[in-house]
C-alpha cells in the first residue's frame, strides 16, 4: 500500500512540474496540494491531528507542519508525503516561523502560553519563553535579530531577542491578535487584531505604534470584519488582508494604510499565500472548506477550489 503511494507520488513528481500551494485542513488531518497551473487539487496527504501552521525549509527539501492535537511539529518529505520525524514542539503548536538561519523554528504553543524555540537539525528545544495567553501570530525580522509572538487573550506582541532568546519588549495591540509580519525590510511590524478589527503598525526600532489600519465594508456589520492573515506584494506597496467572517479580502495601500479595495472570497477567510511571481493569491476559507484564487493585478477572485474541511494554513512549494 505504502509502496503504491510512493510509486504514485514519484510518478506525479517526475515531469517538469508546476509549482504547488500546500493547504492544511484543520478538521480533516490532511494537506491538499494545489497545482498552480491547473488550479486543481492533485494530492491529498495525511498528517497528524489538527494541522494548522505550515512552512517549507528554505531549500524546500522538507515541510514543517504544526499538528496541534498531536502536540508535534511534523517534518515531511514533500516528494513522498512521508513523515520523516517529529520535532519536540511543546503542547498544542498552532503557528510557527522559520528563522532566516534555516535552523531555528519559533513555535507558538497555544494552550501553554509559551513560545518554544527548536533547533531543526539537532531536534532539540533551545528555549521556552513565557508569553501571553494563547500565543498564535509568529514572525521573525529579515535580519533574524527579532522574533515576535502575539498572544490572543493577552492582546500583546511579545518581542524576542533571538540572541538571548528572551523578551525585550511587550506592546499592547487591539483584541485578539492573530498574525504578525515584518514589512518594509524589517522596519515595520504589522499585527492584525481579529476582534479589535484593526492592524497595528509598529516602528521596529522603537517598538512604538506608528499607525492603525481600519476596515469598513458596506453592508457588513463592523463586528464581522475580523482581520486575520495578511501578505504583501513584492514591492511592499500593497497588502492583502483576510477579514474572516466578513468573507472579504481588503487591499491596502501599505504606505498610506488606506483600504483601496475589497474582494469577495469564501467564508471565514483565514490565511493566504502567493504563487512564485505573486500574480496569484490563494486564500484559505475555513467555513466553506475551499481556497479562493485571486488575480492580484485585477484584484478579482477567479476560481474556487474545494479542499478539505476547515483549511487553515497555506504555503508555496516552487518546483523549478
Amino acid at each position: 500500500m505504502k509502496l503504491i503511494a510512493l510509486a504514485a507520488a514519484t510518478l506525479l513528481a517526475a515531469p517538469a512540474l508546476a509549482d504547488e500551494i500546500w493547504v492544511t485542513n484543520e478538521k480533516d488531518d490532511t494537506i491538499s496540494v494545489i497545482d498552480i497551473d491547473t488550479l486543481e487539487v492533485v494530492r491529498t496527504i495525511p498528517t497528524g491531528e489538527r494541522p494548522r501552521g505550515i512552512t517549507f525549509s528554505k531549500d524546500h527539501s522538507v515541510v514543517y507542519i504544526c499538528a496541534s492535537d498531536s502536540d508535534a511539529v511534523q517534518v515531511m518529505d514533500p516528494e513522498t508525503g512521508e513523515i520523516l520525524h517529529d520535532l519536540p514542539s511543546g503542547e498544542d503548536p498552532e503557528q510557527f516561523v522559520l528563522h532566516p538561519d534555516n535552523r531555528r523554528l519559533y513555535i507558538a504553543n497555544e494552550d501553554d502560553a509559551i513560545t518554544t524555540v527548536v533547533d531543526t537539525e539537532t531536534r532539540k528545544v533551545i528555549a521556552q519563553i513565557d508569553v501571553g495567553i494563547e500565543p498564535e501570530g509568529m514572525a521573525v525580522s529579515p535580519d533574524g535579530t527579532i522574533a515576535i509572538t502575539t498572544s490572543e487573550t493577552t492582546n500583546m506582541a511579545h518581542w524576542i531577542d533571538t540572541e538571548s532568546e528572551q523578551l525585550f519588549a511587550n506592546t499592547l495591540v487591539d483584541s485578539r491578535p492573530r498574525h504578525a509580519e515584518f514589512v518594509k525590510e524589517g522596519s515595520e511590524l504589522w499585527v492584525s487584531s481579529e476582534i479589535g478589527g484593526t492592524i497595528t503598525v509598529f516602528d521596529v526600532a522603537t517598538q512604538a505604534e506608528k499607525g492603525k489600519i481600519r476596515f469598513e465594508i458596506q453592508g457588513v456589520h463592523p463586528d464581522r470584519v475580523q482581520p486575520v492573515g495578511f501578505e504583501l506584494t513584492d514591492d511592499e506597496k500593497t497588502a492583502f488582508v483576510a477579514l474572516g467572517p466578513s468573507n472579504h479580502l481588503a487591499v491596502i495601500n501599505a504606505d498610506t494604510f488606506e483600504v483601496e479595495d475589497y474582494i469577495l472570497v469564501g467564508r471565514r477567510v483565514w490565511h493566504m499565500e502567493f504563487n512564485a511571481d505573486k500574480s496569484l493569491l490563494f486564500t484559505t476559507n475555513g467555513v466553506s472548506g475551499d481556497v479562493t484564487v485571486v488575480d492580484v493585478a485585477k484584484r478579482k477572485a477567479i476560481k474556487t477550489i474545494k479542499v478539505g474541511r476547515f483549511p487553515w494554513g497555506a504555503a508555496l512549494r516552487p518546483t523549478n
Binding site: 502560553a113 501571553g132 495567553i133 487573550t153 493577552t154 492582546n155 500583546m156 511579545h158 523578551l167 511587550n170
Partner: peptide, 10 residues
C-alpha cells in the same frame, strides 16, 4: 489566571 498572565508583562 488570565489577568495575571497579561499583568505580568505590565
Amino acid at each position: 489566571a488570565d489577568n495575571m498572565t497579561t499583568g505580568k508583562f505590565l
